[in-house]
Structure formats: C-alpha cells, structure tokens
Amino acid sequence: MCLALPCRIVELLPGDQAMIDVSGMRKEISLALVDGVEVGDYVIVHVGYALNRLDPEEADKTLALFAELGEAALAEAAGAL
C-alpha cells in the first residue's frame, strides 16, 4: 500500500481538491498536503492525497544519468571482448 503514482493535475477544484488523469481515467484527489500546485504539474499521489510535487528536470537528469552510465559500461564491456 506504499505504492504511489506520479499523476498529472488536469484541473484545480475548490476545497483544496484537484482532478488527476490516470491513464485516461479521471480521479479526484486532495491537495491539502502541498502548496502552489498548478494544472500540468505532476504530483506523487498516495491514498487520495498528493504527497509531493515531481520535479521534471530532476527526472530527466536521472534518466540521462542512467543512459550515460549504461552506455559507458556497455562500451567498456564490448572493448574488453
């Protein structure tokens, strides 16, 4: 039950609520735990609450790092053959 998903905010609703899009399905969640969320932001949703905002720049950096480390390792492995 600790699983939580990054979801995109598609609409802000009254009472600190928001609508998210989960694979085409719309679902209402609470924004009571986060400040300053806007439409288009990604948030980590858990038991109906946004726990935190997801930082797209950091996500891209992490993916780029995976690719870089992997390519270097595979190149080295190929070189060793």
Partner: peptide, 12 residues
C-alpha cells in the same frame, strides 16, 4: 535497454 546498461555498470 537502460536496465542492461546499469546491470553492466554494476558488474564492472
């Protein structure tokens, strides 16, 4: 594919 790369990095 990325997983394979990371696996190679760990092995190294």
């Amino acid at each position: 594919e990325l997983a394979k790369g990371l696996a190679a990095a760990i092995r190294q």
